[in-house]
Design a protein around this nucleic acid. Structure first.
Length: 209
DNA sequence: ACATTAAGTGATT
DNA sequence: AATCACTTAATGT
């Protein structure tokens, strides 16, 4: 029934037996743009694997302040939520659909057994984790050294990469919220990027050159 | 034409 | 880099 899932699993170098298990055990979930997939607190007992579309992973603090962390694209799964669920802890992450997306939801309870049972799954998880870890280190650097300009530019490039479009349809205010800064700062930095010839600006829209 | 929302700017901390 | 106060520009009704 699901060719998408098929091609994604085949591309991930997983054992045929595991692929079978994933196909029989998971369930398909459709999310509309803007819909929350995982929110901190209500510990969902399922891990999303992105089949199609785009998920946005954010960190949320006690005051409800949100910071953009990274995107999850097709074939990717949330390494954070996997490690969280292994520890039985509630995730402090929020995952929101950035576009209408198709997800394959896998019950948490299967994750741990699969890791011990399947070498390929262990590799898959660790690889996902490694990638995120490297990214987070970079993110920390940017925050600590107050490089908002670099953070912003990286955010733009990430968005372009993830959506596959050179047009970003967001307001300065929305971007400011994602990076946890003020609109004024974003406006100024975008202006700078525009002067440097890296972007073009319109209302509700930024083009990456 | 008027109201609303988005974006630009100078001054200040 | 953040905030304030204010201006200008774009859009909706």
């Amino acid at each position: 029934m699901n060719e998408l899932l098929d091609t994604i699993l085949k591309g991930a170098n997983l054992e045929p037996k595991l692929i079978e298990e994933i196909q029989t055990i998971g369930r398909l979930k459709k999310t509309r743009e803007g819909q929350t997939v995982i929110s901190p607190g209500n510990s969902s007992d399922e891990i999303p694997l992105v089949l199609q579309g785009l998920l946005k992973v954010m960190r949320q603090d006690a005051n409800g302040q949100e910071v953009f962390l990274y995107y999850l694209e097709g074939g990717e799964t949330c390494a954070m939520s996997i490690t969280c669920c292994l520890e039985g802890k509630i995730s402090a992450f929020k995952v929101v659909a950035e576009e209408d997306s198709l997800l394959w939801m896998i019950p948490m309870s299967y994750i741990d057994p699969w890791i011990s049972k399947y070498q390929s799954f262990k590799k898959y998880v660790f690889q996902a984790y490694q990638t995120r870890f490297d990214e987070l280190l970079n993110a920390i650097d940017s925050v600590v050294f107050h490089h908002m300009d670099k953070r912003l530019y990286k955010y733009l490039l990430d968005t372009q990469q993830a959506t596959g479009s050179f047009e970003i349809h967001k307001t300065h205010q929305q971007i400011a919220n994602e990076l946890n800064t003020s609109r004024v700062v974003i406006s100024r930095l975008l202006k700078k990027l525009e002067k440097e010839g890296k972007i073009e600006q319109y209302r509700n829209r930024i083009d990456i050159l």
